[in-house]
Simulated assay, not measured.
Amino acid sequence: MADNKTVPTAASPQDFIDSVPHERRRQDAQTLLALMSRITGLEAVMWGPSMVGFGSYHYKYASGREGDALAVGFSPRSANLALYGLTYAPQAAELLPELGKHRTGAGCLYINKLDDVDQDVLAQLIALGHEFMVSENFTSS
């Protein structure tokens, strides 16, 4: 998920996506931008230099450290698409086996290209993830 130094910026998500050098990754990012905008009902916001986010949540650790992070989002990395906030909802565990080719790690969902996954399942994960991350049910530890 977003680290403690990643904050929303005034940068344009569309300009960022337009600058992605790999054509396929750029096309997939454009599709994710439209899909996440439609599902969340929110405009995209850049978090740091490379994360496109939709909505936010507040976290507070037992240590007292707290801040805000994107609720759901993505980053079109050179090696894969990293998707944030989609694996925390309890229902995600049931949907992930139906998604298609992917891997998870450090709270992220990684896919090589959108053609590798069932986009209906991805849409469900986005909706569930966003709802869960902005709800009172989610707490960071």
Rank of each mutant, 00 (worst) to 15 (best):
V45A: 05
A93L: 05
Y84E: 06
M36V: 07
L42S: 13
Y84N: 04
F74W: 12
A29H: 00
H130G: 07
G100M: 10
H58T: 11
S56C: 06
Y59P: 09
P90Y: 10
F74D: 15
Q30P: 01
G100R: 01
I111F: 05
F74Y: 12
G55L: 04
D28M: 11
Y110P: 07
A123S: 15
N112Y: 01
V20A: 13
D116C: 02
S19L: 05
D15G: 15
E131M: 05
P49N: 05
L128D: 06
T40R: 10
Q124G: 02
I111C: 06
Y84T: 05
M51S: 12
A106P: 00
G67D: 04
P13I: 09
K113C: 12
L114T: 07
Q119P: 06
H130E: 08
I39C: 09
K113R: 15
Q91Y: 00
R24Q: 14
D115E: 13
F54E: 04
P13C: 07
V20Y: 14
D15L: 13
V7A: 12
M1E: 11
A29Q: 02
A69C: 12
S135T: 08
N137T: 00
S78I: 09
M1Q: 05
S37F: 04
F138L: 11
H22W: 03
L35N: 09
A93H: 05
V72S: 01
A93C: 08
N80P: 00
T9R: 10
S78D: 14
P76S: 07
L70E: 01
A71R: 01
A127L: 11
Y59Q: 01
A127Y: 12
V121N: 06
P49A: 05
D116T: 03
Y88A: 09
T40V: 09
N80M: 06
G85Q: 01
M1R: 07
Y84L: 13
L83G: 02
